[in-house]
Every structure is written in C-alpha cells, then in structure tokens.
C-alpha cells in the first residue's frame, strides 16, 4: 500500500512541481527574505582589483555580448562593472557582437551615465554591432578605425575625446567581456594571449566552471560568475542592485531543488528495499 502510494508520489504530475517552484521564487520577490550574499569569490575580487588599480583616464574596452535571454544574470554584472569604471574616471569603450545586446547597452548607459554625469563621446563611446568577431578582434590589433569609423549613431569616432590616443590594443589598459556565449574564449585566445592585453570576464553561472583553467594560468585576469558573481561585485563597489536582490530571491528555490532530488532518491530507496 505504502509502496504504491510512494510510486504514485514519485510520478506526480510535473505541473505541481512547476507551481511549487513558481511560489518559492515569487514569494521572496514580493516579500524579500533579507539574506543577501555575504561571501566573495577570489575570481570576482581579481576583476575588481584589476579595475581598481588603473589610473584615472585609462581606456577600458567592454565587450558586452548578451541578449535578453541572459539579462537577469549579466545585466546587473555589466551595470556594476560600468559603475565601477565610471567611479574611477576611466574612459569606457563598448563593442558588441550579439545583435540583441544593443538594446540592453543603450538602456544601461542611459541610466548609469546620468548617475556619474558622464557624457557620450567624451567619457564613453558605444560602437556599433559587428557580425564577425574574429575579423574585428584581429583588426583592432593594428588599427581599430579600420572597422569602427563611426559610433552606433553614425557619429565619427576619430574626433571624440574619449578615443584620444587610442588606436589598437596597446592603448587599452583592460578588456572586460560580459557574455553568455563563447566570446570570452575568443578574447582570451585571439587577443589576451596574443597581444598581451589583460582580459577579464563576466559570464553566466552555466559557463563559469569552464573558465577554471584560464584563471589558474592567469590567461584570464578575473571572472564574475552568474547572479552570485553580480551580487559579489555589487557588494565590492558598495552599490546593491538587481544581483543582490536576485540572490535573496533564489535562497528558497535552491533549497527546493535539493529537497526534490533527495526526496525522489529516498523514495526510490524505500521502494527498492520495501
């Protein structure tokens, strides 16, 4: 009898599980638990340290390559990174190789530039989307103006104060790539390793474990991983945002998935030995 009931329970309509997850995730959004992230991974601190040590006026290139499908993880991360760069008075250049990221970049800079009173063309430049990442990366090693003649609004970039003295990788202090794709691998392989430019990254939690080897060899100067990484970076720059509130909301859902795996395996054990 118990065996049958357990078997029935293990084959429960999955929509009940869906509902359980929805509730577990929605409730902390409406009423936050108040347990924000406390620990900071070493790889995240390395990114922070690499930006922190740059003298004001250094040129940092951001390659922001994520679209709305990974927005909740990567947008808070990119926002925190740009905030950090602006607060350090660094010059910021933005490139992208994902068409869907153009809208997110616009939104990010419209918001953050106002917070730090930074202006387009003087303190930062948003370069247009380009389809062939390898071609652009290779071109930027000799003369970036060979590909990027205008910014995303069609304004000539050569005359912009933000681009003063910047022609190729030699004139850049750091490259930070935020992406949910393999584009960070390209930055490491085709740019960082070859032209000895420091490359740091921000990636989705899914791809985070794959970058361990690059971090160990210092081919990657630091890595922010997933929503937790975003929360860590927000606490490093002392500006809590969507990453911090996100981690708070994920608390219960994480425990739910562990409980589900354990429950189903315990049920199986009981059924087997009953």
């Amino acid at each position: 009898m118990l065996k049958e009931q357990l078997q029935k329970f293990s084959r429960i309509d999955r929509r009940w599980i869906f509902l359980l997850l929805a509730i577990t995730l929605l409730v902390p959004i409406i009423k936050p638990i108040g347990l924000p992230n406390k620990t900071i991974a070493e790889a995240t601190s390395r990114v922070y340290g690499n930006i922190e040590k740059l003298p004001a006026g250094s040129f940092v290139l951001f390659s922001l390559d994520y679209d709305p499908s990974t927005r909740p993880e990567l947008h808070p991360m990119a926002t925190a990174l740009v905030r950090h760069a602006f607060s350090r008075n660094l010059r910021v250049g933005v490139v992208t190789y994902i068409a869907g990221s153009t809208g997110l970049i616009e939104e990010l800079f419209a918001r953050v530039s106002k917070e730090y009173n930074k202006s387009d063309g003087k303190d930062y430049v948003i370069l247009p989307y380009m389809p062939n990442i390898l071609a652009v990366m290779t071109q930027m090693s000799s003369d970036l103006y060979g590909i990027y003649t205008k910014d995303r609004n069609g304004i000539d970039v050569r005359g912009m104060p933000v681009m003063k003295g910047v022609k190729n990788y030699k004139d850049m202090s750091l490259i930070v790539c935020v992406t949910g794709t393999a584009i960070l691998d390209y930055w490491v392989a085709f740019v960082g390793d070859k032209y000895s430019v420091p490359v740091a990254g921000g990636v989705t939690a899914i791809s985070q474990p794959g970058y361990g080897p690059y971090l160990q060899t210092n081919q990657l100067k630091g890595l922010i991983g997933g929503m937790k990484g975003a929360a860590e970076y927000e606490s490093l720059i002392k500006q809590p945002g969507k990453g911090t509130s996100g981690i708070d909301a994920l608390n219960l859902a994480h425990l739910l998935v562990l409980a589900l795996i354990l429950t189903s395996n315990i049920i199986l054990l009981i059924i087997k030995y009953l």
Partner: peptide
C-alpha cells in the same frame, strides 16, 4: 556536477528576472 549546480542557479536567475 559543478556545472549542473551552476546551471540550476543560472536557470533560476532567468526565471527570477521574468518574475521580477
């Protein structure tokens, strides 16, 4: 295993974004 653990977090983060 590490990749699976992180995938869980990544997927939940995306859902959090839409719920938010």
């Amino acid at each position: 295993g590490a990749a699976f653990g992180n995938t869980v977090m990544a997927r939940f983060s995306l859902l959090y974004g839409r719920f938010d």
